[in-house]
Structures are given as C-alpha cells and as structure tokens.
Simulated assay, not measured.
Amino acid sequence: MSEQEEKMAPEALLASEEDILRGLIDAASDVEQETLKIEIVRKGRVLFSFRVRGLLETEYNDCKEKATTYKKNRQLGGIKMPDETDTAKYRSLLIYKATVEEDRQRVWGNKDAWKQLNVLNGPALIDKVLRAGEKDAVIAKIDELSGYGEDLEEVAKN
C-alpha cells in the first residue's frame, strides 16, 4: 500500500475501488458498443453498406490463426510451426468478424450472393466483392475502433 493510500480514509478507498470497478465495466462494454457505418461507393453510387465494430486482441489472433497454415518441423520432434499466412484471407476474416452480427447475416451471409458469385462463405464473398483498397480502408476503420492509432497520451487522459 502506498503512503497516500495509507493516509486515505477507508470510505475514500472504497469509493475509489468502486470508481475503478465502474470504469473497468464501462471500458469492457464500450468495446462492442461503438460501431461505424461503412459504405461501399463506386462511381458515386452507394452499392451497399454495413456496420463494423472494434475487435478484441483475441479476435485479431483468431483471424490470424485461421489464415495461417502450419507444418510439422521434424527437427523439433514434429511440432507444428507456422508456415505461411494468407494475408488476403486474414484481411477478409477481420472484416467478417468485425461486421455487426445483424449486418454480417444480411450482407456476408447472403446465400443468393454466394450462389451467384460462386463462393462458399462470408469471408470468400468479401474477397470477391471488395477491392484491395476498399478492404484496406475498412480495416483502417476497424483498427481505429479497436484502439490502434490512438495517441497514448489521449488514451491515458480518457
């Protein structure tokens, strides 16, 4: 316990702990509440739109793992080692995962689009319909919602 905490009355410490708990709970609920509408516009025409949310670090990792192939390393007793990450697949998985559930079903889960565009799932549909630059712009927004690119000083203040 610090000197300052020792000098504080028990009531003040309890209030401080409640503030910390409230802040932690608010921070956790804020992660999934903030969304951003993405519009795919070409030649001045909005083709479709969907909403994205920020991702947790574990969600980024899950997407990376799904986009990575592994092979056994015989020198290390057959331990599976990462071999190669399919960057296009990784980026599509990030967009798919960050799309708000309702929009994910409506847009990326559209089975008629799957049939017409000859794809098997939502991430494959993303690969088929979004251009590389569009994917890059969407991922930049997802990263922003996820807290990347924020000034550390600004994060510390908030």
Rank of each mutant, 00 (worst) to 15 (best):
L21V: 13
K72E: 15
L93E: 09
Q105G: 06
A140S: 04
L93D: 10
R45H: 02
G149S: 02
F48G: 11
M8T: 03
L94C: 14
K66G: 13
T85R: 08
G44E: 12
D143Y: 13
Y96N: 14
L120V: 07
I40V: 15
P10M: 08
V46R: 15
I139S: 10
P82K: 09
R22I: 10
A137Y: 11
G149H: 03
A132L: 05
T58Q: 11
D151K: 02
E17P: 00
L14Y: 02
A27P: 02
S49R: 07
D86C: 05
D83C: 04
E39K: 15
E6L: 00
K7F: 00
S92E: 12
E3D: 07
G109F: 11
R104N: 09
K64S: 08
D19R: 04
R53I: 02
R106N: 13
D151W: 01
T69L: 04
D30W: 15
E84F: 15
N110V: 07
D30A: 14
K128G: 07
I126V: 15
I38E: 07
G78Q: 10
Q75R: 15
A28L: 09
L36G: 03
K43Y: 00
G133M: 05
K71R: 12
I142M: 11
V41F: 11
A28D: 04
M1Q: 14
G109N: 02
R45C: 00
